[in-house]
Every structure is written in C-alpha cells, then in structure tokens.
C-alpha cells in the first residue's frame, strides 16, 4: 500500500526536500495554471451569474411585496376616507333632523299660542259684552225698583218722570264712583 524505501531511486543518493526539482516545478506550475483557468474562466463566472440571478429574484420578490403593501395601504386609506365621509353624512343628516324638529316644535308652539290668544280674546270680548248687557238691564231694573222703594218711603208718587230719572241717574253715578274707588284700591 505504501511505498517504502526499497522502491526509491538509487540507494545512497541523498535528497534535500527544500530544493525543488525541475519536474516538480514544471508540473506544479501546470497544475496551478489549470486550476486557475478552471476557476477564473469556468466556475466563478457561472457562480457569479447564478448569484446575480438569485439576487435579482430576491429583489424582485421584495419589490412585489412592497407593491402589495402599498396597494393595501392605499385601499385602507380609501376605506377610511369613505368611512369618514359616511360619518360626516350621518352627522349632517342628524343635524338637519334636529333643526327640522326644533322648527316644527316652534311652529306648533306658536300656532297653539296664537289659538290660545284668539280664544282668550274672544272670551274676553264675550264677557265684556255680557257684562254691558247685564249692566244695562240691571240699570233699568234697579231704577224702577228704587223708584218704587222711594215712593213708598216718601209717600208720594214720583210721577214726574223727569225728576225721577234725575234721581236715579245721580244714584247710579254715585254707585259707580263708589265702585271705581273700590276697584282703584
């Protein structure tokens, strides 16, 4: 398996391992050049091409992912914008409804107020009219009653209508003045 000294060149001939023999250098150089050419011209260019392609594919993938992310971000922004629009729209509608309701309520209130005022005015006028008529009839009745009473008291007939009428009027005006002063208090 292993070479031993018996196969070695002429016995007794000494070799210095630090001194290169010519064939050693020749074949060593040939081997070096061959290997250099293999790597320089064949292997490393192939490796470089493949690494460039790989880098390109990886960069392409990164680019694609970036694009997808940008698209997603744009979609999200669009969605948010639409959501904000919808919210604003809803708020506007609510606001509109609120003002409408207020306006309607005010209208109704005003209408009711007007009706109430009108009814009150009518009632007041009617009351006044009734009071006037009552006053007039009362005045007639109170007059004749007072004349009768006074005739009885003084024993004479107050036939003299002019005189009687004057007395009644005076009495009534005093009564009114009295009432007015009472009301004035």
């Amino acid at each position: 398996m292993l070479s031993t000294t018996s196969t070695v060149v002429a016995a007794g001939e000494s070799h210095n391992p630090l001194l290169p023999a010519t064939p050693d250098l020749v074949w060593g150089a040939v081997c070096f050049v061959a290997i250099l050419l293999i790597f320089w011209r064949l292997v490393l260019p192939r490796m470089k091409t493949m690494l460039d392609e790989r880098a390109e594919v990886i960069e392409g993938g990164i680019k694609k992912a970036e694009n997808a992310q940008a698209e997603a971000a744009a979609a999200l922004e669009e969605y948010n914008k639409q959501l904000a629009d919808a919210r604003a729209e809803a708020a506007k509608i609510r606001e509109q409804a609120r003002t409408d309701a207020t306006r309607i309520a005010n209208d109704v209130k005003a209408q009711a107020q007007a009706d109430a005022d009108r009814i009150t005015a009518n009632a007041t006028a009617q009351i006044e009219a009734e009071r006037q008529s009552a006053l007039v009839s009362l005045r007639g009745e109170v007059g004749s009653l007072a004349i009768d009473l006074a005739s009885g008291v003084i024993g004479e007939s107050l036939t003299d209508d002019r005189k009687a009428s004057a007395i009644v009027d005076r009495f009534l005006s005093e009564l009114e003045a009295d009432e007015a002063s009472k009301a004035g208090k």
Partner: peptide
C-alpha cells in the same frame, strides 16, 4: 497516499 503538496514545488509556486 501522498499529498501533492508534500513536494516543495507546489508550496513554493503558491
């Protein structure tokens, strides 16, 4: 069973 580098030629060239 012998290294190609065990002769001085290759180490020297490199």
């Amino acid at each position: 069973n012998i290294a190609g580098t065990s002769l001085i030629g290759i180490p020297l060239i490199l």
